[in-house]
Design a binder for these strands. Structure first.
Lengths: 128, 128, 128, 128
DNA sequence: GTGGTCTAGACCACC
DNA sequence: GTGGTCTAGACCACA
């Protein structure tokens, strides 16, 4: 799996990494139980600082996406990430709100917005 | 129009303010051509520094949401913000992607996601 | 002669007014010796503050474009504005410099720049 | 590269700085990809506040002249600033207009004006 | 160490 | 009164 970072983005590198790994899991590029490179080798591979990778891994661990074994190293959570719960739904809606407000103001129709969502969902389900 | 800020949030205050004003415009709480409080009075009202308000206003001005008028002060852009363009669509899709990836991983169905979107869109169109 | 002000511009109103009057003189819309509305009536005509018009007139007077008679009111300097001198040349070159630097950076050829200048000069000489 | 500021000028300091950096890029004193001092060290070097430098840098970033890189710090945009577009041409012509009107009024010939332009363009192309 | 954010207080140009 | 500019000093997230 290839990681593409944008060092000029406002988005922190560790978060870009986190998101790409989650997307990798969503798309099935990373299977449950599959192992991830160690912090060290990941850092070396993509040429970033150790701490940055570590921060990302901690984030993924907190989110239940990966588990960090002392022996087996880093593996994608074999049981998959925890199911959507109430808190997640709440957060999601709050996060979506500003995007939709802006879209609405700028005349992007609900239909087109939904198409974007569908298209990305399709991308995840993947004809991969 | 009431502004609600969360000073504990990671989201910068000026951005919270920006988003709330955009939402206000979307919902029609702020009509096009209506004037906004001066940076000073807005700052006093919500108990933050005037520079923070100013930063938000500059952001809104750059986005075409408001206009800084030599005589009328700060007013909601009477012509409304610029219509959705290609760049906006691109950005939006890129922004949505991580939310959808995460939702997908956590088993949130596309249908439920779409319902969230619909619900927020309804909120904007507003039975207000 | 019609004055067009942009109240949303960053450029101060008094300066917009000054520039438009100078342009009027350049184009011959305002002939030397012709009289201009009084501060009061000009202010009323274009719907701005008295002081703003006054500031503009003072500027034009300082530049030798107009003379303010106690009796005859405001008239375009019958002898025309003072000829270009060394100071003016210096200032002009210093003012032009940033525009040219930016144009150069962004790949605007000298030829095209010169064409812009020619075109505006033609506009002044006027097929009016 | 040496920065020369005029603290007495009406022109804001941050804008003087911006213009000098653009000129530096135009003249080739600052090569594409070259890095600029951090806001802090630049501020210390020229004896101004770091926020003032920051404002200038933000302006340059918005104009595509520089890029704020997560690791390399502030660097001159390796791809150069965006090419001249329609909006830029329009703005440029509008900006030039008052200078030319004034020059015309004061009897500065088009030829001499063009010589100034040529001379500055030469300065940029630089026999450096 | 970097840039980003926030605050506080000041002066000025403009209207 | 307004917004725009500048300074000073602080904290934090990031790498």
């Amino acid at each position: 799996m290839i990681i593409q970072l944008d060092f000029e983005s406002e988005k922190p590198i560790y978060q870009q990494l986190t998101e790409q790994i989650i997307e990798g899991i969503a798309k099935g590029d990373l299977q449950c139980g599959e192992s991830l490179p160690s912090v060290r080798s990941m850092a070396a591979d993509i040429g970033i600082n150790l701490h940055t990778v570590n921060k990302s891994y901690q984030q993924l661990k907190a989110g239940g996406y990966i588990v960090i074994h002392r022996r087996k190293g880093v593996v994608v959570n074999p049981e998959g990430p925890p199911a959507t719960d109430h808190a997640f739904r709440e957060n999601l809606q709050e996060s979506l709100r500003p995007y939709i407000a802006e879209s609405f103001c700028r005349g992007l129709s609900q239909e087109e917005f939904q198409q974007f969502v569908s298209s990305i969902y399709r991308d995840m389900k993947g004809e991969d």
